[in-house]
Design a protein around this nucleic acid. Sequence first.
DNA 1: CTGAAAGCGCTTACAG
DNA 2: CTGAAAGCGCTTACAG
Lengths: 359, 359
Amino acid sequence: MRSRRVSHQKVTISQIAKEAGVSKTAVSFAFNDPSQLSPATASHIRAIAERLGYSPDPIARSMTTRQTNALGVLLPQDIATTMDNPFFPQFLRGIGVVCGAAGKTLMLVPPLWGSVLKAIPHATVDGFVVVGLEVDRGEVQQLRRRHVPFVMVDSDAPDDVPAINVDDHCGARAAMLHILGQGHRRIAIVCLESWRQRYEEYTGTLAARLAGYRAGLEAYGRSLDDGDVQVIAASASRAGGVEAFTRLWNDQSPPTAIITMSDITALGILDAAAARSVRVPEQLAVVGFDDLPEAAHATPPLTTVRQPIEAKGKLAAELLVQALEQESEPVHHVLRTELIIRGSTCAPLRSGRANNESA
Amino acid sequence: MRSRRVSHQKVTISQIAKEAGVSKTAVSFAFNDPSQLSPATASHIRAIAERLGYSPDPIARSMTTRQTNALGVLLPQDIATTMDNPFFPQFLRGIGVVCGAAGKTLMLVPPLWGSVLKAIPHATVDGFVVVGLEVDRGEVQQLRRRHVPFVMVDSDAPDDVPAINVDDHCGARAAMLHILGQGHRRIAIVCLESWRQRYEEYTGTLAARLAGYRAGLEAYGRSLDDGDVQVIAASASRAGGVEAFTRLWNDQSPPTAIITMSDITALGILDAAAARSVRVPEQLAVVGFDDLPEAAHATPPLTTVRQPIEAKGKLAAELLVQALEQESEPVHHVLRTELIIRGSTCAPLRSGRANNESA
DNA sequence: CTGAAAGCGCTTACAG
DNA sequence: CTGAAAGCGCTTACAG
């Protein structure tokens, strides 16, 4: 006694074939290439499938077609931490535009059991956009083993891997020059967090930005080792900024300017400063990095280094989709950064315009 | 002549078996259950696999284990639009917490070829968190066919489907009562966009909030059909807010208060008002919905209805993971909302405290 | 401790 | 226009 209602058991192509008195081939064709079948057979099969409540198994389909229709984004941190930073929604927005156009889904792949390395073999995706990876421990090798295309964003990519970066060095240097040009001496640099202990060991984006700050300092005859310059790290979140501010402000001689590697951290610093009634920019100048939408709406509006976040995501996804469709040349793109001067920076109090150079 | 380097061809379990002189079973065990093998065999196999650059095929694995280790989030709109609204990163944050704990990846599943219905059968996930779906056209049926568990958030869910909602009615009514209590008469309600044309046809979250506004109005002897009350729709983005403001403000008699269904829309309205030098709250009161982190940092700080966005995501993911592990009861949760009064609302100009009731 | 074999649910030449 | 069969790359009873 067969039920006419949607069965409780998952129905497969074989059951439909049996029920319809045709082969599995015919059933498959009815859905994927009806032109191979007589209209009558096709509609008969579809009717049976409908009655049985058939839903094709996407895994089995992937198994034979050898593709999943999903793009992966390999994240350096867990999803919750990642989403704390508005950088990512923007970045995913860019990727999402391409997913929409190409009919792909998007898989967020965080480290598995604390390890990016372990996550790589497990994700059922056709390729990866790898973002912010501090390459070192064989992630690239692991990705190669997977034999799926990948595009690296904000990382030091090997020449044979497509890559998107922004001109971090230039942007960071501009930020530092801006601050120095205003006469600041006691300067704190707030880096993004890294698993590396010492900033001298940073690689990738972090290293490039740090080198930019250094270059700016050197133009003024200063250096990172300068007693008046300090480098700390904070997580890319408002909370990280609050914490960084607190640490810096409790110092015996707090900085008059803080340069951060992330707007969201800078916004947290703004929050914390306001809570302690520290006036920005008069008592404390603050510079961000990213130019998130909220940067312009902050109080005061945030001086920051703009980078084209959404464009990075879009371009990365485009390269990936392209690599999926055909063997393509591994190009390296470097997108521009730009210093946006707003209200969160000015000359330090009682500095009396310390510099006489006009440049 | 076998290469000692990572082969260019994808290597499979069979090749390793042949190379190591063992069965495929043994190779599988070497990775998944080494205790079944003598230590020597196991390490021999692993060495060969390492040399060949083996990476297990996740699809094939999924095919036999019947699971993908991925949770899906079924989105009502494309990824780019979705990411415009900071609601989603927050929501995904909640889901992400659970993914991290359970070792799952997270798949964003937007409509495919413009259709949620078509996306459902295609996603290789173990289950779905369905969010903001205006159920009508068989999505639930389609989900059932898939024979995977799903949890519905912000939707009218059938009794036998686990669901998370917030008390939209109560929150919306509180917002309206607040505005009416301040003496506003000309009020605009800015709804979230829907594919439905007329607000009378709204379902789910939209309908619940609208009913809340209506209840608030009725407490003051007013109604939605009131000539001084207008209802429009706008997309959940800053741009949507800007557009809504423009439309409303160009009216012959613009509202003195705007109540929105989304903070990000309200923030866009704040932007647009500032750009037109319209003073908030004196000339225009604005109320949001969500209480995003940026609401408190806006200028002026936004009066809004707080809902526990991250908790919704977390709870939904927890229910889903639970359903994945065992048959479980389909519970319906309703989380609390709360009116947060900040600086974006006050009595209208020249209103002279129009009401004499004290309640 | 190890292997031969079946099976997961599809797709796709190939033959008729 | 239709069907029998092989195959995608694994896992897992089952037997030895």
